[in-house]
Each structure stands twice: as C-alpha cells, then as structure tokens.
Design a protein around this nucleic acid. Structure first.
Lengths: 347, 347
DNA sequence: GCCCCTGATTGGAACGATCAAGGGGGCCGA
DNA sequence: TCGGCCCCCTTGATCGTTCCAATCAGGGGC
C-alpha cells in the first residue's frame, strides 16, 4: 500500500519517508529494513544491498521520536550551561564542549543544552529526566557542596562529572578530572629548572578545593626541592585587580623572582603590576598562569600557562557515559588526567 | 487497570508515570489528563484541579519521545558548533549560546549541539532534518558563499541565520545581524571627539564582507568629518602578529594617533607594537578593538572595544524562530542590531 | 415533555519505530 | 520420506502521547 499523500502542495516540506515506504520500495517488510539499519548481519548480502539501495535512493533516516519512544532512549546527553562570567579569562568551556559534541557524535549521541533555575538548581535536571528527554548528564560545575551530583546520584540518574567529588560524604559516581596539583608542579619545576628559587604562589581563597589542590602542587614541589615558601603565598579573589595587588605586596615584602598563579586571570594582574614597575615579564620576573586561556595565547608577551587536556577529558567522559549506559559499571569510579605546560615568553 | 510492575527491584530507576497512570489516579481518561496539560481551558475547574493534583503527586512529565512522535515536533533547535579557533580572541559565542539557550527555554525549546563534517558541510543538517530530530536551525557562520543557508532554504527547512546573506543571489531567509559599520562608526566618532584626526584602520582582507562592512563605517565617518584616510588603512590576516606588523608600518609611514581595528585580536597586535615602542596606549596612541572579548576585558590596559549585543541577537533569533515555526511569516526578513562601545583606558 | 445545543469527557486510531514470536524453505541426518 | 534445525524474513503488538469523532450530561426554548 502506498502512504497517504500528505503533500498539500509543492511549496510545503515533504514529510520524510518512513520505514514502511522503504520496505515497500525494496520489496521487504518493515522489520527487515529496521534490521538493515540496526543489525545488518541478520540480512542476506543480496537483500542488504537492495534495502540499502532503497534507503539511499529515498534518503531515509529513522525517525528519532519513534525510535526513542520504542527503545526508551533519546541518544541525548544533557549539559547545563552555566552563566557566563565576564571579566575573567576562563572561556575554556568552548574547547571542552566542542570535543564533547564531537566525541558524543561518534558514539551516536547528541548534546542537549539547558539552563538551570538559580533558585532550584536541580529543576532543569529533574524536568529532562522525568520526561525522558535525555539519557544522561554531564555535570561540569562541581564545586564543593554542589547539590546536583548528589541529587542525580540519589535519583540513580546516569551522569558523569567533570570534577572530583570533593566532599567524601557525597555518593560515589563516575568522574573525570584534571590533576591541578600536577599542573602547578609542572609549572614550579619548570621555574626551578630555570634557576628560580624564590617562587611565589597567588591562588584562590581557602574555600575552593580546586584552588587548594593547585596550591598543594606548588607547595609540595617547593618543599621537595628544599625551597622556601613562607611569605610567598597569597590567596585572593579571582580577579585581575586582586592578582595585581597580591603581586605588588609579594614583590615588596618577599622579593620573589617568579609567580605561579591559580588562573590566567590572576596572572594578568601580575603582568600588569610588572608593567607598572617597568619589570619585563620573562626577563626580570617569570610568570605562569593556569588554563591556557585565549588571553594567555593572545597577550603580546605570551603567557606561560598550564593547559588542561580538555579534549581528553571530553573523550573520557563519553567513555564513562557509554559504559554507564550499557550497564557495564565503569571499571573505576574516576579518571584523573595530567595537564601540560605551554611555555611562552613570560617564563 | 494498573500498569505492569516493571520494577525489577528497588535498585533500578523506576520508570516514570505515564498519562494513563495519572488518569487512573485522578479518575479520568487519558485524554482529559492530556487536556489538563495542553488545553486547561477545556476542563471544568474542579476536574482540572483534581488532575493537576494527581500530576503533582506522581511527579508526572509528558514523555518527550511520545509527544514528539505524535506532534511531529521535537522542541529542539539545532546549533552547529564550529571548530574552536585558538590564538584568536573571539570566544564571544559563549555569551550568545547562553542567551540562546535561556531564551529558547522560555519558548519551550532546547538547544541541540552538533558538529559538521568538514568535507560535507550540510551532512549534519541533513541528518537531523531527515530524522526529524530538530524543529529548526540557527546558522551562525554565514561567511560569503556559505552553502548551509542556501541549502537549508532550498530544503525549506526552518532556520534563522546570525548574519546577513551577503550574496544577493542566495535565497531569502530570516536573519539577525549586528551592524558592524555602526560599530566602527561609534569607535571612530569616539576618537574624533577625543580630538584625533589621523585615525588608522586595520582590518581583514577584502574577501570578508563582514570586514568590509566594518571598514565602511570607519571610512564613511572619516569622510563625513573631512578627515584623511589615504595611507591610513591596512588589510591583513586576523592574527596578533599581523596586527602588530600593520601598526608598525602605519606608524612609520602615516603617523596616525589612533587605531580602529576589525577585531580585538588585531588590536592586541597594535598594543604589542606600542609596547615595543614604549608608547602608552590611551595616552600617546588610542586603540579601539572589536568584539569586547575577554582579552579586552582582562588586558591590564583595558581595551576600548565595540561590543556586539549578542544577548539581543539571541532573543531576536528566538523570536524569528517562533514566528517561523508557527507559520506566521516573519514580518520582515531581517533584523539589524546596533552595537555599543565599551570605553576603557586604551582610548 | 421533547428536542436541540453546547460544553465536558471519553474511547479508538495513529504517529513510526523496535520487540517478540512465528513461518517458510533448504539442508542434513535418519 | 520425514523430522528437526538453522537461516532469513514476516506479522502482530507495543512504546506514550495527541488527534478525531463520538458520547454523555445538563439547560433552555418551544
């Protein structure tokens, strides 16, 4: 039987062919076409070729909604976009998201963006989950006490976090993270190799576990090399101005010859202070940032910076998601990746 | 009848309640529950309240796949993420995407990200379209001769472009864009108001319509004020280095006191050249960039820059999409928004 | 009292795919 | 010759929702 003519006129978009249309054309049943798409091994080579020909000719693509309804999946991965922070240098999400989208595509998934209510941070997740609009989530902002990860774990919703669960109390769940301490260790050892001995740290306030992790890398490396750290550390807000002020104080009081910073934003502040004092970055004073943001790349005096392997993070997250969705429990519950150091003129 | 117990154990996620479940609980039929969700006006107030109660209690959310199948929509808007360009300063997509996601959510849509094949730029679009995975597209990279817009228009697929169709030959379609010429006009008039008369232009190569548009704003404003432009314009690649070299040449040959640049990337090059020559940005020489990128915000000598109203662009795009999807032809075929100038220390 | 009309609600069908059985034909061994 | 098995393919049922037409109850006009 031929499908009812739903083309009201040539000016309206034609409705795409269905499984039944292809089946009729190829002279087989619906199920055979379905198998040709999903389980080609089940078909005799001749039949497969014929069906594939029909699919090709008609430009058939399985209707997503129908497939999703039947299989109870959506092939979608939810990603909440957090508000843009202007005035800071961390626009690295671009890099991450791009690779995430690409890698998911290889695994047959697409990425769905959504925003959250500020009042109820889990509202967005809850909606998508209950309407079975996504198969899984990627949770990116895992600051301390982030309720989302715990909530999702409690709901037994499949998700992978970019970021370690910092509070041990929270339920276990798969995660992928970058070893911040290893990054600052790289930076510190690079500076030590350059002959620096008085290396200062400018980081975030104590309530940031990520900041403390990065600080630990600097601290431990300094100690291992028997270098002084007292009076050489500063913890401030993540703004250019704070970084600049901290650098000024440290320069006055402790005379460091190099700075390791918890972010490129802070490093920009340091560079500003150096500029005000007519000190040449990379010659008089070395500076290393964190995140390899576009600022670090574009700044005329190239800023040496710790670069997070965001592409690898995305790949690992998709891996974890896949084993999660195929109900194979992830081998371990976390993957920790090591960043690299991009050396530029500032060190 | 009660639904079959599909809960194999408390450790597995419970399948969400369906329309039928809610109907049973509320003592009404499926259709009535459906109406309560989609056409509340059809219900008697008492019934509506009862059904809403049941929905609330059971935490019901309509199954997306089923609804999509029946209504032939997906409530999804496709957005192709273009490859990340490192080393340039235009990470403004973050701002745009965020507002797009938020605004679409208000309209009941989500944003689906996908990537494209480099060889076949329309492959990604084609797939999503044929599988009815998205309702519409937002096309962002509308450079000259971009095949996507033309292809989509030919397919009669609903889409809105961020960017004007530069070649008149291409099919008409709704678009939203930022008036680049108005931006450089703002920049130029700002500099003129500051007393500058020799204002140079550093832009992109001639084959970029966007670049030519921005250049035109500078050129026209200069002419209107009877100011010279010969020997004061340069067209180069969009890199920091090119911008710096162009600035050096212009400084040597034409002695400008100010620069208007087609991008923040180029402006960074100019700043670098000034730094090399011990010229103070904002005092000796004024510099204005374009895009108000994070670099402009974070750079210690704040870079004056033309800021695109990306939030407004996103809102207008969603507006256009909505009228497109409700089959009301958009009132006009294009919306042109005016940028603003963010004045900082560099001018 | 009867009929019609309107508003509220209902049951059946359909959207387009996959799942779960079932069936026909060829090949093998008995 | 016949049962049994495997391979390839087909048929009917189903996922959860919305569309469509039909039904039902309640009022008002005559």
């Amino acid at each position: 039987m031929s499908r009812p003519e739903s083309r009201l006129g040539a000016h309206l978009p034609v409705s795409p062919p269905t499984l039944a249309d292809v089946a009729e054309r190829a002279g087989v049943s619906r199920q055979t076409v379905s198998n040709a798409v999903n389980n080609p091994d089940l078909l005799r080579p001749g039949t497969l070729e014929r069906v594939r020909g029909a699919i090709e000719e008609m430009g058939y693509s399985p209707n997503r909604a129908a497939r999703n309804l039947r299989t109870r999946t959506s092939q979608l991965i939810g990603l909440r976009v957090s508000p843009v922070q202007e005035g800071t240098a961390n626009a690295m999400m671009d890099r991450f998201v791009h690779t995430l989208v690409e890698t998911s595509a290889l695994a047959g998934h697409h990425v769905l963006l959504f925003t959250g209510d500020d009042e109820d941070p889990v509202a967005g997740y809850d909606n998508l989950l209950r309407s079975t609009a996504v198969d899984a989530f990627v949770v990116t902002d895992t600051y301390l006490g982030n309720p989302q990860a715990a909530w999702l774990a409690q709901q037994r919703a499949p998700f992978v976090a970019f970021g370690r669960p910092w509070d041990r109390a929270s339920a276990r769940h798969p995660w992928v993270d970058v070893d911040g301490a290893a990054g600052t260790r790289l930076a510190t050892e690079h500076l030590i190799a350059k002959g620096h001995t008085r290396i200062a740290w400018i980081g975030w306030r104590k309530d940031s576990p990520i900041g403390e992790d990065r600080r630990a890398g600097w601290l431990k490396t300094m100690h291992e090399h028997g270098l002084p750290t007292t009076g050489l550390a500063s913890r401030v807000e993540d703004t250019v101005q704070s970084g600049g002020e901290a650098a000024a104080v440290l320069l006055d009081e402790s005379e460091p010859t190099a700075f390791v910073c918890a972010s490129d934003t802070l490093a920009m502040g340091v560079l500003h202070t150096l500029w005000l004092r007519q000190l040449a970055p990379g010659k008089d004073i070395a500076v290393v940032g964190f995140d390899d943001s576009q600022v670090a790349q574009v700044y005329p005096v190239g800023l040496t910076s710790v670069r997070q392997p965001l592409e690898d993070v995305a790949v690992e997250i998709v891996n974890a998601l896949q084993s999660l969705l195929s109900h194979q429990p992830a081998p371990e519950d976390g993957v920790l990746l090591t960043p690299t150091l991009v050396v530029r003129e500032s060190s």
